[in-house]
Amino acid sequence: MRSRRELYLRLWLIRLFEQKVENLFAKGVLHGTTHTAIGQEAAAVGACSALGPRDVVLSTHRGHGHLIARGGDPCRMMAELFGRETGYSRGRGGSQMMADPSIGFWGSNGITGGGLPIAVGAALAFRLRKERRVALCFFGDGAANQGMFHESLNMAGLWKLPVLFLCENNGYAMSTPTAAASAVPAIAVKAAAYGMPGVTVDGNDLFAVFRAVSEARRRALRGEGPTLIECRTYRLSGHSRGDPRSYRTRAEEAAWRRRDPLRRFRAELKRQGEWDEATERAVRREAARRIAEAIRYARRSPFPDHEAMEKGVFA
């Protein structure tokens, strides 16, 4: 596990990155749309910090946090959101399509559930090539209703592949509560149908997520197959830009705000006697500095060259 300070820094980097992104969209500086992960930081950081450097991560439409958790560069992320040449996808992908293969991040994606079969295939290749690596796929409660989810879990269970299915159950798919879209609204129990363990953890508790993913990873590397991990969490922000959140109450939001994963982490550090005001200030200052730097970097970067627009479709 990384140092506590480093974990705390990543939580704050995600929080501030997402707040800044929301702000830039609200001010009309950024166009299009975006999905932020405020409130879900612990699942991202907890899961990614349990992985090895050669493991790979597949992400979702709500992927900024996953990429930062994996060690992604906020400068290149911000530049992508600004549509610049220096962005992760040279401005071609935008908020929902960023990848950094150099750190084992194979991409966020705009198709709900789309990452699941890709992770299965990566794990199949690891197995065939006898590599000690796992693939982890983030997905949401809503994605668990896609055919791809069921087909992917079945193949992974059947072939006992080294893949970790990490569900961030944040209670809603857009406006639809989990219980209004799933006949059995618990995600983890679905694992039973596909011959793998299903575990449920408090997704706002970074250490709980870390432990569950570490255990699942050890299992996968022993050749015992996949695990489905359900992290119970909540997105404190709207689904996407401009979501009026009419499908839930402010009281419910307030209750979850009290369970804010950053606060939780800080409380845990305090309990273990590893926290002091100086660390708190230093971490926040550093996170703020790096996000400000990311915005400066994005603003300074050039737009992509139109002449090259048609290049790069084929190898």
Binding site: G32, G83, G87, G91, R92, F303, P304, H306, M309, E310
Partner: peptide, 16 residues
């Protein structure tokens, strides 16, 4: 539109 996926960057999208 030319033979490319639609790019996200507003400057490219406008050109495409």
């Amino acid at each position: 539109t030319p033979e490319i996926p639609i790019p996200a960057s507003p400057s490219l999208e406008r050109a495409a």
